[in-house]
Nucleic acid binder design. Structure first.
Lengths: 348, 348
DNA sequence: GCCGCGCACTAATGCGCTTGAGTTCGATCA
DNA sequence: TGATCGAACTCAAGCGCATTAGTGCGCGGC
């Protein structure tokens, strides 16, 4: 009766051993499902453990070489850019779902840039904090795969193209090239000949891939007034670029935005300039979300199951942690959902 | 020359001790800034440690009673609800900033509901994973404070009202009541007498607080046609409720939405019904974001510095971890930013 | 000149768990 | 019947760090 309730004490394997009348090692064997104990003892130990509410201390586990039961996830984007974007929360949501099943923790960090991100990986590795990491926003010239190699840290690259130079890394990606080709197909069929692609961050692997594909598709059809402009993904730049390209002498008749946020901002900017969507200019958003159905006109968008994307990535990472081989897995190509923002090109 | 580069090995204190020609204990003393070594030895040890790129193993630290150098953050909302909401990423961004300075990790998890969230806390505690947690979305009848008490886990409640029954918890909150009063003031001054508050999740502490305040303010002015409707924060419900209340015999002339997403969806829904904003109905969004400036008309919104909110919460938690006392700290009241969506009530 | 004291440092222990090396004992086989 | 083996356990060491109890030594005080 101290008056103050003492904070509960964590039960340890020693407690279980005592209660079950066996040695600590037997408890360890029993609970980890390895041979060396009879089934009846195993059951007894399991029951006692459950009754005591025992959970292995990750600290102790990690210390005795079992890994930290944690994976890391770093987001390296300017703080103001990650405001409205729904992509990451969805992705993380899917990742979580898979990790939680296996009782793996997710260590999350926001960094300012790639260099900081690398420093975070180094620190996590040195501090014994994570068993593997999920890498997003791969770049065309990316230092992270090399670093992970050097540290021997298992990693899954999300959204990158397959990279033969890093056989240790698993890559999970969608074929952006195919999606871009489909978009161009659709717009071309609608009569659009002048298209501007308002892209995301220059240097990101998927940005560059989309840009290359767009150019290839344009060349294939002999279109000369097709181009890409890179941005920082923000609504502000999306709007600014939209105003700029629409103010030219021969404005495009179709705009393809690399995310939903810029598309929405772009539509508003276009409206401000007197362009109506889709009568004067068609708009496609690369990334579907509630946002696309919250504005009028509803935005045609490239849709994919981002949560499932996250699940896939997490599953691959757990496979890697289990000692499986690195792989390259492709998730379904985003599908173009035609809504109200795309229509026939206006005849000149 | 094995041909295969061996993954780098983590340097330990033993390595430092050897290189510096002292015992491990001396190294420990030196690096943790406690007495027992001379300044010159301390410097030498520090240099060697730096040179070797040594970082303390959190596993070992945690095991020897120093805590896990990690804080936990659980988000318990339905997966589809957390899509567009910018609040959390902003909040986490601020939290991160402070934690990173102290090299504290952030363990992040998404749960389905409060019960699951509690289970996560229990597991984290039993597994020795976190030193403290950040609790969001406090409810009117919330099991979490009791649980944290029981586990002796330091916690900071974000967004709750001060709670005298849990002296161990720090609370960081904004005075929603004051903000709501300001909103009503403003709308009243503009001539609005029929106001509907499209609130968030019923049961959340701040939802209830806003509802109570709205009622009190209405009573004070003798307004009878003022009410709140709770939702799940989604754009879908926001739109649905908007349509319902605007379809009634005497539709409200002002709508106050508990987040930006619903407000945007609501404006679109109102437009669909032939109501123009702000001519027919004024709209205020509780929570400002890029979203509010991405749609026309620009939304008047209650704005606050969410990133700073996160920073404050994290600072309080670190203070708690340092053994400081639990406190109740109030962050600035959200300010109403008048934009285009609020105007004089239409005379009947 | 000896005692005691403080300083700089070492030795040893423990945190909770895993694991390889024993130990015991009953069943099996030549 | 004694050697052999395997199943079921126990022992003890070790992971990397913090921490408590020493240990050796120079120095001031009497």
């Amino acid at each position: 009766m101290t008056g103050k309730r003492s904070p509960a004490r964590r039960p340890t394997m020693k407690d279980i051993a005592r209660r079950a009348g066996v040695s600590e090692s037997a408890v360890s064997f029993a609970l980890n499902g390895r041979p060396g104990v009879s089934e009846v003892t195993r059951d007894r130990v399991r029951r006692v453990a459950e009754q005591l509410g025992w959970r292995p201390s990750t600290a102790a586990r990690a210390l005795s070489g079992e890994g930290a039961a944690t994976v890391g996830f770093v987001l390296a984007r300017p703080a103001d850019t990650l405001g409205v974007d729904s992509f990451f929360l969805q992705l993380v949501s899917g990742i979580q779902e898979v990790l939680a099943e296996r009782h793996l923790g997710l260590l999350f960090q926001i960094a300012q840039n790639i260099a900081d991100e690398c420093a975070v990986y180094r620190r996590w590795w040195a501090e014994h904090r994570v068993d593997g990491v999920l890498v997003v926003d791969p770049r065309t010239d990316d230092p992270r795969p090399d670093l992970l190699d050097e540290l021997g840290l298992p990693g899954v690259v999300i959204g990158g193209a397959p990279d033969a130079r890093h056989p240790g890394l698993t890559t999970v990606w969608a074929d952006d090239a195919g999606a871009m080709a489909a978009v161009v197909d659709e717009l071309y069929a609608l009569g659009h000949r002048r298209i501007v692609h308002i892209a995301g961050l220059a240097g990101l692997a998927h940005t560059e891939r989309r840009i290359r594909t767009l150019r290839a598709e344009a060349d294939r059809r002999g279109l000369t007034e097709v181009r890409s402009v890179t941005t920082d993904y923000s609504d502000a730049e999306g709007a600014a670029v939209t105003r700029r390209v629409l103010s030219g002498p021969t404005p495009p008749t179709a705009l393809v935005y690399d995310n939903d946020v810029m598309a929405v901002a772009g539509v508003a900017a276009a409206a401000g300039l007197g362009f109506s969507v889709p009568a004067d200019v068609s708009v496609v958003a690369w990334e579907d979300s509630a946002l696309c159905r919250m504005v009028k006109p509803w935005l045609s968008a490239l849709s994919r199951d981002t949560v499932e994307f996250g699940r896939t990535a997490a599953r691959e990472l757990t496979a890697l942690l289990d000692g499986g081989p690195a792989r390259t897995v492709q998730v379904p190509v985003p599908q173009l959902i035609g809504r109200e923002s795309t229509g026939p090109a206006r005849g000149d």
